[in-house]
Simulated assay, not measured.
Amino acid sequence: MDADQPAHSPAPVPGSEPALDGRAELSEFLRTRRARLQPEDVGLPNFGRHRRVPGLRREELAQLAGVSVAYYTRLEQGNGRNVSGEVLDAIARALRLTDAEHAHLTHLAKPKQHKKKRAARPQHVRPALLQLMDAMEGVPAYVVGRRSDILGWNRMAAALFGDWGALPPEERNWARICFLHPESRALFRDWDQKASDMVSFLRMEAGCFPNDPRLSALVGELSVKSEEFRSLWATHDVREKGHGVKRMHHTLVGDMTLSFETLRLPDDHDQSLVTYHAEPDSASADALRLLASWGADAARAGAAGKEK
């Protein structure tokens, strides 16, 4: 196992990082969702080309959702304290939100207070799960937790993505690696999509854990250090991506097209097991086998060096 200890960020200094502003998050999310729709998209007449605001007007959205303009305006100003689930459902339908966006809206409008304590607990990977990943020969696998923290991984994941064990624990974070490590841009052929997915994941986290100081610190750091992150964060896009395909270029074995699966753990929904595999009898499968052989040789060399 490449990670002898689960990785989690060090505790911040109490009070050093403000929580994300839930009212502002709700307001901006609704505004950006409304701005992407045109009247003709939802069956409303478009009276003239010179509209003062992009997308639907507040009164148009309120009409579609069956609520008063004043009620919707209060909600879009961030006041969701007394909003009902039925009203949120109606607004989600009017805005044509995806399931992930609908869940995000609910988290923003009706945050659960107990999640503050839940987010503060350090995460650990069960030993049996670490053993399972070690047994998955030829399959890069890792466990990701809250804030996209990388909690544990197997030898194949280290061979594919790099030696996470050489990073300080607080640096073992996918979002930080994606935006602040140049190597990730070289590895992922579709880095733009990877970056967009990463920000969408953090947006979902912000809705679930608005009072998490470590998440606030991560967002603040990336906003300062990465123009791409700032731009993507401002879109307020959210989505869940449980599977898909990634195109990669590894310095040792060349181009690969790998499918990934994200499996949320049943006993801890804040942790997910992520695996990568190649289509059988493909050039990518050959590249993975070569990478596995190289990883095994590197591991043996490292073990021999420790014995000397």
Rank of each mutant, 00 (worst) to 15 (best):
F201G: 07
A285Y: 09
G207N: 07
P111E: 06
R51A: 12
L30H: 04
G15F: 06
D149Q: 08
A90N: 10
L108P: 01
G162P: 01
Q123R: 04
T275H: 05
V87Y: 03
A128L: 13
L288W: 01
D212M: 10
A195H: 00
F47Y: 13
F260H: 12
L75D: 02
N211C: 05
F188W: 11
V199K: 03
R57M: 00
T106Y: 07
T257H: 13
R146C: 13
A304N: 13
A195V: 00
L218P: 01
D163W: 06
A70V: 10
G85D: 15
P210Y: 07
V224R: 14
S16W: 04
L160R: 11
H181W: 10
T262S: 15
L290G: 10
L202T: 10
R189G: 11
E170M: 07
H8L: 09
E28I: 07
H114I: 11
N173S: 13
S16K: 06
T98S: 15
G165C: 12
R126L: 13
Q77L: 01
G48W: 05
A292M: 03
P127L: 04
A158G: 10
A65D: 08
E76M: 07
D89W: 12
A100V: 02
L232S: 05
Q38L: 15
A287H: 08
V67I: 07
I91F: 06
Q271D: 05
G22V: 14
A285S: 14
L108T: 05
P169S: 14
H104Q: 03
H107F: 08
V53C: 00
Q193C: 00
A70N: 07
Q193F: 07
E227C: 09
E221L: 09
M133I: 13
R289E: 14
D255G: 02
D192Y: 02
L252I: 08
V53W: 02
S84G: 10
L290S: 12
L222H: 00
R81A: 15
P12R: 06
D192R: 14
E25A: 15
S259G: 09
Y276V: 10
A195S: 06
A135W: 11
D297A: 14
G295A: 11
Q63L: 14
E227F: 00
P266G: 07
A109R: 13
P266S: 13
D297E: 15
L258S: 03
G244K: 01
A92G: 15
L30R: 09
N46H: 12
F179G: 07
A35C: 03
L130I: 12
V238P: 03
V67Q: 02
S223H: 09
F229Q: 08
L26E: 01
S293G: 11
L187Y: 08
R189Q: 13
S216K: 05
G55M: 02
P140W: 12
P122R: 01
A217P: 06
E59W: 00
E240C: 00
L95M: 14
A24I: 03
A303L: 09
V219W: 14
D89N: 10
S196N: 13
Q63W: 00
R264W: 10
E227N: 01
A24C: 00
V253K: 08
E205C: 04
N46C: 13
S272G: 00
D99K: 12
P18D: 09
R51E: 11
A90Y: 01
L37Q: 09
S27M: 05
